[in-house]
Simulated scan of single mutants.
Amino acid sequence: MPQTQTARLMDGAALARHVLDHTAAMSSAISHRTGKAPCLATVLVGEDPASATYVRMKRTRCETVGITSRHLPLPATTTTTELVDAITSLSEDPEVHGILLQHPVGGHIDERAAFEAIAPHKDVDGVTMRSFAAMSFGLPGFVSCTPGGILRLLDAYDVDLAGKRAVVVGRSAILGKPAGMLLLARDATVTYCHSRTRDLRSIIREADVLIAAAGRPHFIHGEDIKIGAVVVDAGYSPGNVGDVDFDTAKTRASLITPVPGGVGPMTIAMLLSQTAEAAALQMGLVPAELIPSQG
């Protein structure tokens, strides 16, 4: 068996454009039938430049697909109680269909309490415990956007997960853990790895499907990857650097996501797609009946 090959790129940017076109069509149908556009509320605590940039990007994307954006900026001194009250108010507002709390929110705030203030039917970012439970049990609800985008990518490239050894490097509540649950639901055999995993690299080498979500730049190298594995890099560090050393990994993987242009665009596309779906459901519409299937 050859020890090197050239991986195909999993083009998240192209797939995201397809998802956003579908979302724009759904938003248009909702507006035509109800006279109201879907609305996403974004909440930002403090003035972290990276977080502010992410929020601006998401709001700009909203405009391109016919979703109204409402932004709530809060000072860095905001307390947990004040943030929970603000999110509760948005949850109770019938004009708001989806809520995004940009994280991190600051070490003095109980982030989990803030997330749990989001009403489940408006949790279009898939961050609440109820959404995680729905993902885990295969019940209706909204998936965490990055893991959901990863599954859409794998589907688009015809990756059959049944019986495959999937390794998730990272265990965050909004990325690693839900990614593993979604893979398990597709009949993959899932192993979670983290900072205290023994023989981490030997486990990575057994992966048919590798999800890198450790948040450590160039943490995984080509020699760590099984020949022919599917590699999804969900990490991002300044300088457009992922968790995987792309140049060495692409000589061993069969499929690989680039950074940027892989998982990132799909995360935003999933957020807006789920916002449109949430709006349809809250307005008493059936999302699947609004426009033809994506196929």
Score class of each variant (00 low, 15 high):
residue 12 G to L: 03
residue 13 A to K: 03
residue 18 H to W: 12
residue 23 T to C: 02
residue 24 A to R: 04
residue 30 I to F: 02
residue 31 S to C: 13
residue 40 L to H: 01
residue 44 L to A: 02
residue 44 L to R: 01
residue 47 E to S: 13
residue 50 A to N: 13
residue 51 S to R: 14
residue 55 V to H: 04
residue 57 M to I: 12
residue 58 K to Y: 08
residue 58 K to F: 07
residue 60 T to L: 15
residue 64 T to I: 10
residue 66 G to M: 09
residue 70 R to E: 03
residue 71 H to A: 15
residue 74 L to N: 07
residue 79 T to S: 14
residue 85 D to P: 05
residue 92 E to I: 03
residue 102 Q to T: 07
residue 105 V to K: 00
residue 108 H to M: 05
residue 110 D to E: 08
residue 111 E to S: 06
residue 115 F to N: 00
residue 118 I to L: 01
residue 120 P to N: 08
residue 121 H to C: 05
residue 123 D to L: 01
residue 126 G to D: 02
residue 128 T to L: 05
residue 130 R to P: 03
residue 138 G to A: 09
residue 138 G to W: 08
residue 139 L to Q: 15
residue 140 P to I: 14
residue 140 P to F: 14
residue 142 F to Q: 02
residue 144 S to T: 11
residue 154 L to R: 02
residue 158 D to Y: 13
residue 162 A to V: 12
residue 163 G to I: 13
residue 165 R to T: 15
residue 166 A to S: 15
residue 173 A to C: 15
residue 175 L to A: 13
residue 186 R to G: 08
residue 191 T to W: 12
residue 197 T to D: 11
residue 198 R to E: 12
residue 199 D to P: 05
residue 203 I to N: 09
residue 208 D to W: 07
residue 216 R to S: 11
residue 217 P to G: 06
residue 221 H to M: 09
residue 225 I to Q: 01
residue 228 G to E: 00
residue 234 A to K: 04
residue 234 A to C: 14
residue 237 S to C: 09
residue 243 D to L: 10
residue 252 R to Y: 08
residue 252 R to T: 06
residue 254 S to M: 10
residue 260 P to H: 04
residue 263 V to T: 12
residue 264 G to D: 04
residue 268 I to P: 00
residue 273 S to I: 00
residue 281 L to Q: 14
residue 282 Q to E: 12
residue 284 G to D: 13
residue 285 L to V: 11
residue 289 E to Y: 04
residue 291 I to G: 09
residue 292 P to I: 08
residue 293 S to D: 15
